[in-house]
Design a protein around this nucleic acid. Sequence first.
DNA 1: TGCACTATGTATAAAAG
DNA 2: TCTTTTATACATAGTGC
Lengths: 192, 192
Amino acid sequence: MVRPRGRQSMGRQRIAIRRIEAKDRRQVTFSKRRAGLFKKASELSMLTGASVAVVVFSEAGHAFGFGDPSVDAVLRCYAPVPGDAAAPVPPLRGAGFGEGDDDLEALRRAAEETKAQVAAEQSRMCEVAEKIVVAKAGRQFWWEADVEALGEAELPEFARALEKLRANVHRHANALLSAQPPPPPPQQQQQQ
Amino acid sequence: MVRPRGRQSMGRQRIAIRRIEAKDRRQVTFSKRRAGLFKKASELSMLTGASVAVVVFSEAGHAFGFGDPSVDAVLRCYAPVPGDAAAPVPPLRGAGFGEGDDDLEALRRAAEETKAQVAAEQSRMCEVAEKIVVAKAGRQFWWEADVEALGEAELPEFARALEKLRANVHRHANALLSAQPPPPPPQQQQQQ
DNA sequence: TGCACTATGTATAAAAG
DNA sequence: TCTTTTATACATAGTGC
């Protein structure tokens, strides 16, 4: 194992979180970070017992997904249909995996991924369709509209203010769930 | 800023990726890692222009979500609706932000998060939500008003779309991988 | 209860094979 | 082009306010 003297690499460099223009690097980054995202999702699920679903569509239209217990299961939970009610949703959760599950976990991830890919094969063109729906809905998302309306000149000042607001938004966001006005009607949706 | 002599903290410790038994820590870890996961998802989207949707259900049954352009938009894509497709459409995606977008990005993320949370939470009781028409015109802060208005306004359409979505997801899942436990139309609660 | 800090584990941008 | 390696940026477990 010879160890050449000089630096063998520049090591990880800091990059701005904005679209990567170089196609090559963008693709490489996509693959790496997608894997990383799935791993994080998996760990979150394993550690806390939460149900997690992640769906990713690359620019090329390829779909990837990860889910515990499965993407579909979590999505069912996310979108309970009135008529179908009684989707009480599951405390379900992954059981306890063993220790050397590193490989199993990776395999599991790969399986989920493949599954999503296959499913996406038929929904390839949906990326376009999705945008139609969104566009048809009318206005852009409010935060986009507002931000863009500000103009770049005002952004710096606005950004500074946002730094403070960010904390408030976060706090408010979390408060919404727990402090949200409970549905007036006596009917109460069971929520585990 | 005195600097006490001894180590101020043990620093990050390595932990096994298995269910955290201590309830307190489990919850803390959930919050931290959920935030981290959303951030990663956001970055993946920003860097590569991919569409990403993440839905998380805590053990307590609380729903959290992140999506770009939005959770439901991506999910719609995941489950294509045959009769609802086709037609070119403007990008609307990665808007071109300035340089100091660090704060803007954070806000955008928080906004997405908030919106998704509200949508996810309310979608679980959409029957009730459909009847609720609230005029929160008295809000002092634009983000509060808009966030709440958005969730309520989009709910009906959202719910309707999801009804079809779910059916498609099931159909695809069953057709593509017979390994998936048959989720009959009627209610069913499957484990794992 | 929540937020801030710090040391350290982990993810990953580049470079090399 | 894909895999492996390196150096470093980033995420976060444990702790204190």
